[in-house]
Every structure is written in C-alpha cells, then in structure tokens.
C-alpha cells in the first residue's frame, strides 16, 4: 500500500491500496515512514517497506 499521509506522533499513516481504498495503518514496526513509501501491510500494521518514496 502506498503512504499518502503520516502522523508520526500517533504512529499512524494513511495508505491507499491497489483498489484505491484508504485505511489507517500502524507504522511502529517500520522506521521513518514517508509519504510515497510502499509498505507491506497486514491487519492494519505495516510489517516492512517494499520501496522508499
């Protein structure tokens, strides 16, 4: 999923998936998430970064 906004204070990013739907994702397990990053998300948590912005 691609990151469209990041709230570092809350540890939450908004990500958009293949079908265009946006969800909130917990990003505590991936360091320094930035807008445009592509993340592997499972059950609302980012597990790894597939590609940097």
């Amino acid at each position: 999923m691609r990151v469209t906004s990041v709230d570092d204070t809350c540890g939450i990013a908004v990500c958009v998936g293949e079908r265009g739907s946006a969800i909130e994702v917990m990003i505590a397990l991936v360091s320094a998430v930035r807008i445009g990053d592509v993340l592997l998300v499972h059950a609302g948590t980012a597990l790894t970064r597939l590609a940097p912005a």
């Binding site: 540890g11 917990m26 397990l29 499972h42 059950a43 609302g44 948590t45 597990l47």
Partner: peptide, 12 residues
C-alpha cells in the same frame, strides 16, 4: 492469526 497478525494485536 499467525505471527504475521499478532504484531497488530500487540500494538493495539
């Protein structure tokens, strides 16, 4: 879920 899903529960 397996270890893939458990972190999400833990963070919550």
């Amino acid at each position: 879920g397996f270890e893939t899903t458990a972190p999400s529960t833990a963070l919550t």
